[in-house]
Amino acid sequence: MMKKRIQQIAMLCSASFLLLSGCGAKETSKSEGNKEKTYRIGVTQIVEHPSLDEALKGFKQALKDKGLSVSYDVQIAQGDMNNNQTIANNFVSDQVDLIFANSTPSAQAALNATKDIPIVFTSVTDPVGAQLVQSIEKPGGNVTGTTDTHPDAIPKTVQFIDKYVKGNRVGMIYNSGEQNSVAQVETVKKAMKGTDLKIVPVSVSTTAEVKQAAESLVGKADCIYIITDNTVVSALESVIQVASDHDIPLFAGELDSVKRGGFAAYGFDYYDIGYEAGEMAVQILKDDKKPSDLPVQYPKKLKLLINKKAAKDMGIELNPEWDSIAEYIE
């Protein structure tokens, strides 16, 4: 009788132990299920300059604001196309969750490396012409993002030059190897139709050639217009120096170049288009959206920014008419 009683107690204890063990296992599983995922994002950027750097800041802030835990691997190609492709290939080998491509060459290299990993770009001038997407509305494939081309930016700049600059020769320095730059030059030519403005083009391949290119425009150009060309913008200070020394108005394609010493630009904050790209990345990573579902986004804001100090350095007299259409910085 005693032996049977002991067996019953043992069985009861064993059952209780199993029940507690099961509860513990279930609790552990729940804890593991609630563990926040850390997404791995590879960032590829062709060069370092203020506009691209601001775009990256905006991208990171968007993901932070949405509460995502992210591990970033930021790689700068230093303007070298071989490095550019190697960076993209390495991200694919590492099987990152998403690639953030900051510039046209960076996005092209990423797409060349993978058709499976989602790619979000920014600072891309002509996504369709660069063969990154099928169309703005329906990107297709594994790529989408934000473009740094506001439809009105170049036409308004050309109109301003035509109305307020003495002379009709517009010097343009650009890297003919950058597809985004070639596309912008063609847009400038179209915007000039109906005016007597004409382009004086100078092509460069590296940043080391930019100063000499700027010097070659002295006496040949009545103003200089630097579009969003990564090679030239990386060496912008040399162009600013030439323009200041020879009283040549220097127009730019984005606001950061005006803050660095350019005279004027119709533009927007690259931080904003980076932020918008970050919001798209959140939809892909967190909401299971596909890049093909997300149309390419244009910049939402456009403004004219004029640098008063640069105007003085370049011998430009400020026009009261500009007060109602421009923002000024000293």
Rank of each mutant, 00 (worst) to 15 (best):
Y328N: 04
D73M: 09
Q78N: 14
E317M: 13
G315F: 12
I199T: 15
N90W: 07
I117R: 02
S244K: 11
E186P: 10
I154Q: 02
S203F: 11
T147G: 05
L18I: 15
A10C: 08
I173G: 05
K35F: 14
C223G: 04
K312Q: 15
K37Q: 14
T86W: 05
P299A: 06
K138M: 02
T125W: 06
Y266N: 06
V242W: 00
I240S: 05
K30H: 10
Y164I: 01
K303F: 12
S205P: 12
S31F: 14
T146F: 12
N180C: 02
L20R: 11
V143M: 01
N82K: 13
T44E: 09
Q45H: 05
L318A: 13
T157M: 10
S106E: 04
D247H: 15
E209R: 03
T28R: 15
L294C: 09
M2F: 14
G315S: 12
I329E: 04
K115L: 04
L56D: 12
G42P: 01
K301S: 14
N89H: 12
I329N: 04
V70W: 08
G141Q: 03
A281R: 04
L250H: 01
A243D: 08
V239H: 06
M1L: 09
P201N: 06
L52H: 00
D323C: 08
M1S: 14
L132F: 00
D222Y: 04
L304T: 11
Q134S: 15
F59L: 10
K189M: 04
Y72I: 00
S93D: 13
E36D: 13
V165K: 00
S181I: 05
Q297M: 13
V158T: 02
E327Q: 15
R260M: 14
S123E: 14
A252Y: 07
L68T: 03
I87W: 06
A213Q: 08
S244E: 14
I248V: 07
V232A: 12
V120L: 01
E276A: 13
V200K: 03
M314K: 13
S106Y: 04
S257V: 06
P295Y: 03
K64L: 14
P118I: 00
D116T: 09
Q85R: 10
Y174M: 08
A277M: 10
Y270P: 00
A62G: 12
Q78T: 12
